[in-house]
Design a protein around this nucleic acid. Structure first.
Lengths: 204, 204, 204, 204
DNA sequence: TATGAATGAGCGTTCATTCAT
DNA sequence: CATGAATGAACGCTCATTCAT
């Protein structure tokens, strides 16, 4: 019986995943408001009612899409390890930026959603988004403070600077994702530029 | 007769401005999509038809709100003057950042709209927004290249770095504007931090 | 004092007439529903409120325009005189058709209104229109019966045939009036054709 | 599976037809402009959204109602056959008028719409209506010319006379349809009168 | 008298969600 | 579980009419 339930659940999950895959694309293409349930079910090839069998609401599937990205990002981005014997913090920062960029480009559709619909869906969503970025900002802030403690980073308001870095990355990624062929982008080079800017600023 | 026309026009303009003031607040609070004509007319204390006496459509008033900020920004932000005898470029850059921050905080509601509704109102609006940020980016890019020509700025991809700066400023401003008491913010200090980060990066 | 009132009344009447002249044109061009108060006051060069000073409502001015035509037609179309010594009835019928066509072409705008908006404005208007055509039909019917009494007209259902004649004239006039240069129309010839058809039918 | 699809489609079609039946009545009673979506859905006993499930717009259902009648008429009215051995043209003309009257009385509501809303819905509709009557007029004109070629019909302006016949029929039908009990009308007799008038005119 | 800003009932349409089959 | 017909609240917008100046 477990086996049967499991198989049924797997089927259910695979269907669900299929709809989400499609929704990811449509939401990324058209944005939250411009995407209708009709768009989703037509693209997914399912009936209206079936959609509501798998998702509570339009809002719910969008939410889950975001959760997905958050999960993906959290799985790929690690905190900087400052224990003795760990790689130098700078290298770790480089790695973080590289990984973040890579992850976002890999999941470009979902990332576009995140960067497009900055806010305005509803209060819950706004809070959620603010939380998400707040956590990233917190990570960056702590990294900066760690760097300061190690004498690597100059004295500055870690919170403001963390926000600057977050904003810089968001803007660069946004540009890279919107309507551009990912094959033509040199993500690596872009990452290096961002890192160089972040560490050295403009001055020579 | 001139006097009468002028007075009537002034009255009209002041009423118009009143509705726009209210709309500014509501749009900033709820975002474009979540704001209904009902919200606007109720807050402005006018009838449905009266709204359409002053504005062609919901979209139109939103547009005009944005144009307002763009106009204010363009009046306050000047290109960097590299002619001999002009103030040093760095100082001019500082002034630009200071002025931009000041202007945005002064027009916080409208700025919030600009930073909130990243995209998704409609294609025209998206294009308009992209144009707006594109022009800013272009200005930054040219400033960077000028700095490079003068030997002040290190070799880098001016476009990517321009985007970084734009993103950094947007993020910091966004944070500063959303639900925070402007009196408690040290805009000046914030500006300095952004400038320092922009010029020197993190490293000491 | 009478003199002053009279002058004021004359002014009032001439203004009124001016608006009606304009309204005649606009209603004829666009039809009742497609014509807005805005269209009327813009064309007449008066203010919104002024319009309501002269006319109770949009419906009212349209009504009065129709009354105008009815009056004009009634002034030009006379009953057939069958008293001894009168011109032969056939000649009188010819004259009636000629005069009707002439009157309608002369007042083409108002006639267009009458022929365009067959019905559908509201119940009162429908009744009024039905009355108007009913009276004409009655006149035709009596003329036919008179002709029958004189042995000129064959046995037939005078009411149905009266309706046929009315319809024939309406259709021909409608065609003649809509979007055609009156100078290029041979109204006289058209009238003769209608009369010949009415009297002799198709057969040779 | 075919059976199920067919049954579902039949159900859909019958519901659609139900709404159209109701709409036919309401439009005939009140006219296009005076009929609101509310009137239609209340009379049909369906919800607002349901209406738009079956019809694209208010305009669309009106259009389809008209197309219905045009289709019915075209199925019943044939061109006059002048080949040797065909029934005499006069008999064919008689048959045409009889059929047209019968069809219109049978579809009285839809016919009322056609005869009521002479023009004024919108430009597209006006054109459509003009086309419709233009085609009928063309048919009549050609019939007259054929009759002239055969020496049956007297010399006349075929176009003007065709218009007369069309107008006569329209007027008689309009009268017969509006607010009258069809059982009390002797359609056959009415047709004969129209035909007699058309062929012989008034004169004995 | 003349004005035109203000009104608000009413419109046609959309679309996320429900539920009987 | 899957369907898709049905729902109805909500929307942006229009326009004939009113009324304070």
């Amino acid at each position: 019986m477990d086996g049967r339930v499991s198989r049924a659940q797997k089927l259910r999950e695979s269907r669900r995943a299929g709809v989400m895959m499609v929704a990811r694309r449509i939401f990324a293409e058209k944005g939250y408001h411009a995407t209708s349930i009709d768009d989703l079910i037509e693209a997914a090839g399912i009936a209206r009612g079936t959609f509501y069998l798998y998702f509570e609401s339009k809002r719910a599937i969008f939410d889950q899409l975001l959760d997905e990205l958050v999960a993906v990002l959290q799985a790929n981005v690690h905190r900087i390890d400052v224990s003795p014997g760990a790689p130098p913090p700078v290298e770790q920062l480089n790695a973080i930026v590289d990984r973040v960029l890579g992850t976002l480009v890999e999941h470009r559709e979902i990332a576009q959603i995140l960067l497009r619909e900055a806010v305005g869906i509803d209060e819950d969503f706004d809070r959620k988004l603010a939380d998400f970025y707040g956590r990233i900002e917190g990570m960056l802030e702590r990294a900066i403070q760690t760097g300061q403690g190690m004498g690597l980073v100059r004295a500055c308001d870690a919170q403001v600077v963390a926000r600057c870095i977050l904003g810089a990355v968001k803007e660069v990624v946004h540009y890279a994702l919107v309507g551009r062929d990912p094959a033509q982008l040199d993500i690596r080079k872009m990452g290096r530029e961002v890192i160089a800017f972040t560490l050295q600023g403009l001055f020579r």
